[in-house]
Computed example of a mutant assay.
Amino acid sequence: MLKEERYSVILDLINKKGILKVSDITDVIDVTEVTVRRDLQDLDQRGLLKRIHGGAQSTHPIKLEKELSHIEKKNLNLDSKIHIAKKIATTICDGDSIFLGPGTTIELVHDYLNVNNVKIVTNSIHVFNGFIDDPRYELILIGGSYRNKTGAFVGSIANDILSRINIDKAFIGVNAINDNTITNSNEDEGMIQTTILNNALEKYIVADSSKLNKRDFYQFYTLDKVTAIITDNNISPENIDKYSKYTKLYF
């Protein structure tokens, strides 16, 4: 690979990821670490990236998403949320055991679900309140430390309980997806989400199309390990091509 070709690949990686280690770059372009360090130094001198210890960072990285409150999120992209909630409902069958994570999209699932004998596990007080008066479902609320911003129970107690639970299907709302990386705003919620995804036979990531090509504070899973992304029908052809390389897309 010629030098300018290497530069193009390196800049593309850096601008997508924000920060990369030297070893990450050598794995992609198959040259020595000495060559990569020399390339990074040259690109730094040109002002195209910034050298840091062990790697480099973009001079214009993808901006982290601001975590909104539950009330702020509730009416955002409502049409897309309804579309996704209906899609989630179609994937749930009689007799399933499922986990419904926190999120204003997932809270709408009850309105479109028409099955029986389903065991529903959640750590969301808002999801719990939506199902509490419906006798068709066995409802289990996981307790722990309460996050008022999202209405989720998190922490070591919640994580310990969920580590012992095996379920058929998990539906996890996220703040951002960028390439193969799934992120959210809070590490405690991320740990919970990792645990339950690992214990689910089918793993579904719930994200409207506005969450694509963005990143947030805490990386908790990768797309190549999940069953599908459930999103809305506003997803662009470019993003369909991009993300279908990692997993299935339901929209």
Rank of each mutant, 00 (worst) to 15 (best):
T35L: 01
K73F: 00
H110R: 15
L223S: 05
F251C: 13
N166Q: 11
H126P: 04
P135L: 08
D94G: 10
K203W: 00
L20H: 04
D208H: 11
T104E: 05
I25Y: 10
K16H: 14
I182Q: 02
V28Y: 13
G173M: 02
N159W: 00
D30R: 13
I167M: 09
Q193F: 14
G95Q: 05
Y204S: 01
S156N: 12
G151K: 09
Y246H: 09
K169Y: 04
L13D: 11
I84H: 10
K21Q: 13
N129T: 06
V36W: 02
L113K: 07
L43I: 08
H110V: 14
D134R: 03
K63A: 14
L43R: 06
G18E: 03
D111G: 02
T122K: 07
F171V: 04
Y204N: 09
K81W: 02
T90N: 15
L43C: 05
N213Q: 11
L201H: 08
T104A: 05
L64A: 04
Y246L: 02
N199T: 01
S97L: 02
L223I: 07
N77Y: 15
D27S: 15
G130F: 00
G155T: 09
D133K: 13
L162D: 01
T227P: 11
L162Y: 00
K169R: 14
T181Y: 13
T90G: 12
V174D: 07
G95M: 06
L78F: 05
I177K: 03
F220N: 10
D133Q: 13
S145M: 10
E5V: 09
I205T: 08
L40D: 09
K21Y: 13
I177F: 08
K63D: 06
K3W: 07
M1K: 07
I157M: 14
K63V: 08
A207F: 05
K17T: 03
N15D: 15
N186K: 00
S244K: 06
D133Y: 13
V174I: 08
K73V: 00
S97H: 03
K119V: 15
R51P: 10
I10Y: 04
V118S: 10
L13C: 12
D24A: 14
N166M: 05
I142A: 09
K203E: 02
T91V: 12
Y243A: 08
E187N: 12
K63S: 10
N234Q: 14
D111F: 13
I235K: 08
K203R: 14
I161S: 12
D111V: 01
N114H: 14
D160A: 14
T105D: 11
V9N: 12
V206H: 04
N234V: 04
I62R: 04
T183L: 02
G155S: 10
I19S: 06
K73I: 01
